[in-house]
Design a protein around this nucleic acid. Structure first.
Length: 1047
RNA sequence: GCCGAAGUGGCGGAAUGGCAGACGCACCGGAUUCAAAAUCCGGCGAGGUUCACCCCUCGUGUGGGUUCGAGUCCCACCUUCGGCACCA
């Protein structure tokens, strides 16, 4: 009984592919290449998840298809194997992370082979392999050896002209005053300019656990394990200067064949904004001595005497100095530099805010305010980023007592500190324009600061603000005849704000003169706005026309911005500036299981670091992780590697300098940033990648993976790639030409009814349950109880309990998770239905990019399809596996050829579009049709096997062998279709009357339009709809449709 | 709040502006079988009408619009999901 036996067939062909190295790939300049890549998996101890095979099957189909179309396909797989879980396992059990990792990789590899993916396994790599991380360290040295020259113009090997380039540190110009100070000063100067540099940055230190935590281990300010409080403590860190590349990372997205949504996500993350930097001199802090500016003495700063200082002369001195000397690279002491995207609102500045960490805070604070300022700064420093944003929406801040001078009009502006201004963005200081910025508006309202409108709002905005007035306009119109008194009474009856009241009074006046209209209302609201913009609920932050801005009045926002930026530049008081939301990349971790840095710290005679660095040479690489047995945290924020053996930690250089090794390790991103490069040349022990292979294989033509990597991994990899590009190691500017994000596979649909937890245990309808799902709207605790599909039914748009239709239940699919116990294990699916069924099911579920819920019965459906395909060839009632007698060497009939060629066309085009679900349904249709034939031409079935092979490769190879072939079909030419065979000799044309189908006619393919129209009119049902009407127009779409328009 | 994606039968989904619901699941009926499983054949949006075939009305989140014709294009809105969130 040779039923379709997936297990037998699949293990047979997996062994065959392994033995014959069917998918081994070599570079071949004579053939076109295709590089198809899956996102690098982390080999977790849980093994493969059903989400993995989704993207992997998609790429595998493309690869198998492309090989058959003559492409030289690179399709590799490897392991992103450094990372926390293996290390945590080591802390718990003492098992070395390398051991755990090796075991997990073994399991993953076995599972992937079980699914029949056509990887070139000879290229397998793991980031944890010293022969791999040797080159990760080498790339770090390249980053360390590079500085970014933003003004360098050049044309790359891609033929595109660029401004800005990563250049060798040896080419960094050293300013004369630095050079004068000697070699140490020069080295420190260079270190400040490298793409890899050191910086004090906060880490998540958890005193209770005695360890530093990664960001993903911190949830809501508490440790993920144990829920202990986490502190932010500053620690010396390695940073990568990704911000230098922010502009190119943004602009070079344009040419990539990536989903627009992912591009938008990256642009959003980079967050480029254009504006201006403007300098405000602090009142009383500018003294001109002998033509040179000099800060007033610190004593006068502490004891300023505003009464004796003529602040206009402060500003005059400052302004004339700037007029002569221009805008300096860094502001002078006593000058606050702000960044703004709205320089057109400079006339509306009513206060300024420094971030609590700003360097000028101390100097500017007056004695009277010092205590308050110090307390506030202390509080701000204890708050985590989270406290500063989510939890604390209320604006807080303290006045410093100091003032600065507005450069456009000489106004004296109070300077505050507040934590809504971030030290790490822009210049860490802002000019506040409460009338036209939402945050400033809230702050000003909280602290009673003036709000001065300098942009005339649009009518649309005024209308919106007066939405209630506009709504009532209709009533006003109707009541106007009744007289102003009645309007007045009506106004009095409303719960009005001062704004409304004033607006209404205006309306009332208007009604006495003419018919009221929206224009009157807008006029009223405008009047109120100009009178006091602070009365409104929100600030006007859109573009408008300048008011209260001196000579600039009447300019549009855009014109104003351009003009004032130019004017400020001329006076040396400001300049155009660009800022990014993107921050530099914190590149070090305090962990064991990561790549060691190839860096040494010089020590002085006391054994203390001098701050000077040395690197290992490329020849010293790899720097192997030290052997350690104890992976317990150090108990301090010190990295775990500081517990490494002395011999690993220390050495003495040839010149006698004592050196200590860097004890931070690299983050998991490091290895996954460049693995796609190594796959091109995985065993090269001379270079990270040979230029010939790079030129042949790069870029990756198709990259498929989950959207969770849409921002970080893809941005980091692009950044490294661009540095390697600038340094001449790769010749294409972008790593991934085409990117596709697979959607998430959710658990099976669940129905859940809510029940109260008290003894009554009554059901509660879904709308009565709070969004948290824990209590009802009136506060009773509830719990969700799973219902089976036959306990519920659909009523209208909602699902309800069959027994109690008043109770609406929750019907949805959830993300698969261990805690929810809805995880589907691919091993089980393969055991029950086979790898081919799993592959086809995952592709048949829906569009690749969409999220979709798992369905076990759906797997059974495609399994049945494979059984049908099998029985197309094999008589399952025979004793042996042999071709069915229905399969014969006869020519295919016209109908059969048409079906076959339609299928070839559809499947080919669908694979090209990555529309696998529709390709599969076309093959199902073919199978259904051919099942009904008692005689099945071998030639047609042969082509069908080839079409099926990318989707169900095991079954296809087996059938191919049954058809009498001795070689694998992996490199058989892909079937082609003959357009002439697609056409039917008789067409069926739907006939519409006024756009509604009223009948169908069958006509010969070559029938004339006239014949078709006549036949259409004669069709019985059509004729009945035409009766008594006049045809005013006849629309005929050739071979598609006929439509009569009648009256 | 901002940005992005998506709303089509009981379910997953299909449809270059041209017959809405291909294909699959579930369900129903029939054949085969001693019986069942498996398999094969057929039906399957809602309502009306009809012995039946037919035919009619409604129907792609809501409301408008463009068009001979809209799931598809335009405008406004609602809901769900994902991302960002004091970025000046």
């Amino acid at each position: 009984m040779p039923r379709y036996d997936a297990r037998r067939i699949e293990s047979k062909w997996q062994a065959f592919w392994d033995e014959h190295q069917t998918f081994r790939t070599e570079m071949d300049p004579a053939r076109p290449k295709l590089y198809v890549l899956d996102m690098f998996p982390y080999p977790s101890g849980d093994g493969l998840h059903v989400g993995h095979p989704e993207g992997y099957t998609a790429t595998d189909i493309v690869c198998r298809f492309s090989r058959m179309r003559g492409k030289n396909v690179l399709h590799p797989m490897g392991w992103d194997a450094f990372g926390l879980p293996a290390e945590e396992h080591a802390v718990k059990t003492g098992t070395h992370p390398a051991v755990t990792t090796k075991k997990n990789i073994g399991r993953f590899r076995e599972q992937l082979k079980m699914l029949g993916f056509s990887y070139d396994w000879s290229r397998e790599i793991s980031t944890t392999d010293p022969e791999y991380y040797r080159w990760t360290q080498w790339i770090f040295l390249e980053l360390f050896d590079t500085w970014y020259d933003p003004d360098f113009t050049w044309t790359g090997p891609d033929g595109k002209a660029r401004t800005g380039k990563g250049r060798p540190i040896s080419e960094l110009p050293i300013p004369a005053d630095v050079a004068e100070q000697g070699e140490v000063a020069v080295r420190r100067y260079q270190d400040r300019h490298r793409l890899a540099y050191q910086h004090e940055a906060p880490v998540n230190w958890c005193p209770k656990l005695g360890t530093v935590l990664a960001n993903e281990e911190v949830i809501d300010g508490k440790s993920e394990v144990g829920g202990h409080p986490v502190e932010r403590v500053p620690l010396r860190q390695w940073m990568l200067r990704i911000t230098a590349y922010a502009d190119r990372l943004g602009s070079e997205l344009d040419d990539l064949a990536w989903p627009d949504s992912i591009k938008a996500l990256q642009r959003n993350w980079i967050g480029r904004s254009e504006g201006a930097e403007v300098d405000f001199v602090v009142d009383g802090r500018w003294l001109k001595v002998d033509g040179q500016n000099k800060e007033t003495s610190s004593s006068s700063a502490i004891n300023p005497q505003p009464s004796t200082i003529d602040h206009s002369s402060t500003f005059d001195a400052f302004a004339s100095h700037r007029e002569a000397n221009g805008f300096p690279l860094d502001p002078e002491p006593g000058v606050i530099r702000v960044y703004t995207t709205r320089p057109d609102t400079l006339f509306g500045v009513t206060y300024m805010v420094l971030s609590p960490e700003h360097a000028l805070v101390d100097a500017i604070t007056t004695p009277g305010q010092r205590a308050a300022v110090d307390i506030y700064r202390k509080q701000a420093s204890l708050k985590s980023d989270l406290d500063r944003t989510d939890l604390a929406k209320e604006k807080t801040g303290v006045f410093t007592g100091g003032y600065a001078i507005n450069p456009v009009n000489g106004d004296r502006i109070p300077v505050w500190i507040a934590d809504y201004v971030l030290a790490s963005y822009g210049t860490g200081a802002i000019m506040a324009v409460p009338a036209h910025d939402e945050r400033d508006f809230e702050f000003a309202k909280t602290f009673g600061l003036p709000i001065k409108a300098v942009v005339h709002p649009t009518d649309d905005w005024l209308k919106q603000q007066s939405a209630k007035l506009v709504d009532w306009l209709g009533d006003v119109k109707h009541t106007v005849e009744a007289g102003a008194a009645r309007v007045r009474g009506w106004i009095e009856s409303l719960p009005v704000s001062p704004l409304l009241k004033q607006g209404m009074e205006f309306v009332e006046k208007a009604t006495q003169q003419a018919k009221p209209s929206v224009d009157y209302l807008v006029g009223a609201v405008r009047q109120v706005y100009l009178d006091n913009a602070g009365q409104f609920a929100t600030a006007f932050t859109e573009l408008g026309t300048a008011i209260n801005s001196g000579l600039y009045d009447g300019l549009t926002t855009l014109d104003f911005k351009a003009k004032i930026t130019a004017d400020l530049t001329k006076k040396g008081l400001g300049r155009k500036a660009v800022n990014y939301r993107l921050r530099d990349w914190l590149f070090s971790r305090q962990r064991y299981w990561g790549e060691p840095f190839p860096i040494w710290h010089e020590l002085d005679s006391q054994g203390q670091p001098t701050g000077l660095l040395r690197t290992d040479s490329a020849a010293d690489l790899p720097i192997i992780l030290p052997e350690m047995e104890d992976f317990k945290p150090t108990g301090t924020p010190e990295p775990l590697l500081s517990k490494a053996p002395e011999s690993w930690l220390y050495k003495t250089a040839a010149d006698g300098t004592k050196l200590k090794r860097e004890t931070n390790s690299m983050p998991q991103w490091a290895g996954s940033c460049w693995y796609y490069l190594r796959f091109c040349d995985p065993r090269n022990d001379q270079e990270f990648l040979s230029p010939a292979k790079a030129n042949y294989w790069l870029p990756v033509d198709l990259y498929i993976g989950g959207a969770e990597h849409a921002v970080l991994h893809l941005l980091y990899a692009r950044f490294w790639h661009k540095v390697l590009f600038d340094r001449g190691h790769v010749s294409v500017p972008e790593p991934f030409g085409r990117l596709v994000n697979q959607g998430m596979i959710l658990g099976e649909m669940e129905f859940r009814a809510y029940q109260t937890t008290d003894e009554s245990g009554g059901y509660v309808s879904l709308p009565d349950v709070k969004e948290s799902g824990e209590t009802t709207r009136d506060g009773r605790a509830v719990t969700a109880v799973k219902q089976t599909a036959d306990q519920v039914e659909k009523r209208g748009d909602t699902w309800v309990l069959k027994d109690n239709p008043a109770i609406v239940v929750d019907a949805r699919s959830f993300k698969m998770s261990k805690s929810r116990r809805n995880v589907v294990n691919p091993d089980d699916v393969v055991k029950d239905y086979g790898a081919d069924a799993l592959r086809i099911y995952e592709m048949f579920m829906g569009p690749l990019e969409a999220s979709k819920p798992w369905s076990t019965t759906g797997v059974e459906g495609v399994y049945r399809f494979l059984g049908r395909a099998w029985r197309l060839f094999v008589d399952d009632k025979a004793d042996d596996v042999a071709l069915s007698s229905a399969v014969q060497d006869v020519p295919a009939t016209e109908d059969q050829l048409r079906i076959l060629h339609k299928t070839i066309k559809a499947v080919t085009e669908d694979i090209e579009k990555l529309s696998f679900n529709t390709a599969i349904s076309r093959m199902m249709e073919f199978t259904n049709e051919f099942t009904s034939y008692d005689v099945r031409p071998k030639s047609a079935l042969r082509d069908f096997v080839l079409l099926l092979s990318p989707f169900a490769p095991h079954l296809a190879e087996e059938l191919w062998e049954l058809l009498g072939h001795s070689r694998s079909l992996a490199y058989e030419p892909w079937p082609t279709y003959d357009p002439a065979l697609l056409e039917e000799s008789v067409l069926e044309i739907p006939v519409q009357v006024n756009g509604k189908v009223r009948g169908k006619i069958r006509v010969a393919k070559d029938a004339t339009k006239e014949t078709i129209i006549t036949l259409g009119q004669e069709e019985t049902n059509v004729a009945s709809h035409l009766e008594g009407k006049t045809i005013v127009k006849t629309v005929y779409v050739p071979e598609k449709l006929l439509n009569f328009v009648v009256k």
